[in-house]
């Protein structure tokens, strides 16, 4: 599964140095490259292995012959999964939940962070405290469940998109970013006749594309991967996102097996079906990364303010 590490937007351009590297630095570069290549290999291998398995013959997987290259290449498993309406229904659910949840999260986080970034705001510390409080304390599983049920959100999309819509970590990152924007730009905008909303929408947000892109990525990946709230609040299989479908398939095996019980009911899904499902599930997220990357522009505001 894909997880995003923190990717803070780069503030400034690093210029290539013309100075000859010292010996120590060259050694560092070599060692660094080797270590990082090692990390790449370790992280990439399981994924390439799963991709290889997804195109392989089941017999070859059973015999443990599939490593990096598919053996007994075929697309049969993809055809089986592509013909499975349950899978596509879950997939569609995931897309809908992810888009809606990301949208809601972005609107709430951006507006909250922008308000918090204003130092003259009365009660600002209280508002920050309220948010930070939830990083350390929460109601717990059963109270949350009771709350969502009592609000009538069970078995609706709201149960997965509303709770935890604001990630406090993301909120603080955005707040810090807004705080670092030059005050003069906003002052200039208001002198030119923009009200608060105009300043936010027409000045601040266009200047914040880098942080917004980062936040969209964080939220989208988290929402795409999340399964727990859907598992808690949905009682019908046709509402499940693809992650719940996948999880049931992968970790259902042999957990309840015990001698003397209905062994015939043991869950065993063949390896190639599992791997195809995994590949199809992570594909969109992998596909999104390169496109979001181009928003990680820096230097947009270079020279905007003369001091």
């Amino acid at each position: 599964m894909v997880t995003a590490g923190p990717l803070p937007p780069k503030p400034a351009v690093t210029r290539p140095t013309r100075v000859r590297d010292t010996r120590g630095r060259r050694i560092f570069r070599v060692v660094n490259t080797i270590v990082l290549l090692g990390v790449v290999a370790v992280t990439l291998y399981p994924f390439v292995n799963v991709v290889a398995q997804s195109f392989s013959d089941e017999q070859a997987i059973r015999e443990g012959r599939v490593n990096l290259v598919p053996r007994g290449f075929n697309l049969d498993t993809y055809e089986i999964i592509a013909a499975d309406p349950v899978f596509w229904n879950s997939y569609l659910n995931t897309v809908v939940y992810t888009v809606t949840a990301t949208l809601i999260s972005m609107v709430l986080t951006t507006t909250y962070a922008y308000v918090l970034s204003k130092r003259h705001l009365k009660g600002r510390n209280l508002l920050v405290g309220v948010a930070v409080f939830t990083m350390f304390f929460n109601g717990g599983l059963i109270p949350n469940y009771v709350l969502v049920s009592e609000l009538g959100m069970k078995n609706t999309i709201w149960a997965v998109v509303l709770p935890n819509a604001i990630s406090v970590f993301n909120l603080l990152v955005m707040k810090a970013f807004f705080e670092s924007l030059p005050k003069e730009l906003e002052e200039a905008a208001s002198i030119d006749g923009l009200n608060t909303y105009g300043v936010l929408l027409r000045i601040v947000l266009p200047l914040s594309r880098a942080v917004i892109a980062t936040m969209v990525l964080f939220y989208a990946v988290a929402n795409w991967n999340s399964w727990f709230s859907a598992f808690l609040y949905f009682d019908r299989a046709d509402l499940f996102p693809v992650t719940v479908y996948l999880r049931n398939m992968i970790s259902g095996a042999t957990t309840a097996a015990s001698v003397g019980s209905s062994a015939g009911d043991e869950a065993q899904v063949s390896s190639n079906i599992k791997s195809v499902t995994m590949v199809l599930t992570v594909l969109p997220i992998i596909g999104v990364y390169p496109f979001v990357q181009r928003y990680f522009l820096s230097g947009v505001m270079l020279g905007a303010v003369k001091q």
Binding site: I142, L232, F234, D235, N248
Partner: peptide, 15 residues
């Protein structure tokens, strides 16, 4: 039926 994935059935039952 309240459908619960078999993988985490016990957790949902407790809940």
């Amino acid at each position: 039926p309240t459908v619960v994935p078999m993988s985490d059935y016990e957790q949902k039952r407790s809940l």
